[in-house]
């Protein structure tokens, strides 16, 4: 018996071609097709520790959507002053291509006369990848966040300064700062402004609910600043205004009084049935009365 698929050679050939798609073969990655991106940033965190972070990715030169993180690459971090180069630590990149190193508040940095800290991140070359370095200069900004009530007005105060080698305070000037309140999933922006003469002040909004107890987490953030890079500070405060909606209680299944329709239906049904009982009993009395007459 001739099998059906051989009856139609054209269709059969087309199906075979579809099955032999070129994409079905395994491909090898050619590094030459990729451009390496080595991005180094730093952030002074809320506990005054400093986060050093390198993002190491390979981007396809032809296909911009094809981004591959470089995994398990050893990144060394240095603090450099003139000829002196001190290894601070090293970290391997994660599956996302990110290497992080956290330096405690007490860490002694090498700083120049202006208080600048020169930091360097370095990846040493391997058989497949060439070496990569990135440097940043950052000043150690002290950001203080205070949440106080001044004449019953909830006020947010920040002061920002650096110190020189002699320990003298140098106030920050013209630095953009944003304020947020922590939400369930993300931060909500409540104020944008510029630090002037080392200070910024504003009245806290009076319509933010916070959690059920009125607790809030307030963030103050300087982002991508040329001198200070990222600086974050936050504080908890019980300034939430939890508005209770006084809704007139309706008759519901769960309220003390049942819905009206329930009373109506039940009453109609019971009246209907009991009226019939009464009607029957009245007739029974009539039967009795008639019997007495006989």
């Amino acid at each position: 018996m001739k099998r059906n698929q051989f009856k139609y050679p054209l269709i059969t050939s087309f199906v075979i071609i579809l099955l032999c798609s070129t994409t079905s073969f395994a491909q090898e990655i050619d590094v030459n097709n990729y451009k390496m991106f080595f991005n180094f940033t730093t952030e002074k965190q809320a506990d005054n520790s400093r986060l050093l972070e390198v993002s190491f990715n390979a981007k396809n030169k032809k296909d911009r959507k094809d981004i591959m993180p470089v995994y398990n690459a050893e990144i060394k971090f240095f603090n450099i002053l003139n000829e002196e180069k001190v290894l601070i630590g090293s970290s391997n990149t994660s599956k996302e291509g990110v290497a992080q190193l956290i330096l405690p508040e007490s860490h002694n940095y090498l700083t120049d006369a202006n208080g600048n800290i020169n930091l360097k991140a370095q990846f040493e070359s391997t058989d497949a990848l060439v070496n990569k370095t990135a440097e940043i200069n950052v000043k150690n900004l002290h950001l203080e966040l205070n949440l106080v009530e001044i004449d019953s007005v909830k006020t947010v105060l920040v002061s920002a300064f650096t110190t020189n080698k002699l320990g003298e305070k140098i106030v920050a000037e013209d630095v953009e700062i944003n304020f947020y309140v922590q939400g369930m999933l993300s931060k909500m922006l409540i104020e944008e402004g510029y630090i002037s003469n080392g200070e910024y002040e504003f009245n806290f909004p009076t319509d933010i609910p916070g959690d059920i107890n009125g607790n809030l987490l307030v963030h103050s953030m300087i982002v991508d600043h040329d001198e200070y890079w990222n600086v974050t500070q936050n504080k908890n405060v019980n300034w939430g205004v939890f508005h209770t909606h006084f809704v007139k209680e309706k008759n519901t299944l769960w309220s003390a009084v049942a819905p009206l329709w329930m009373y109506t239906v039940l009453t109609i049904m019971l009246i209907g049935v009991w009226a019939n009982y009464v009607y029957t009993i009245i007739h029974l009395f009539k039967i009795k009365k008639e019997g007495k007459k006989l």
Binding site: L284, I287, K288, K289, E290, G291, K292, L294
Partner: peptide, 9 residues
Amino acid sequence: IGYQDTTSQ
């Protein structure tokens, strides 16, 4: 109840 099986009853 005095039922006498009359037609009306």
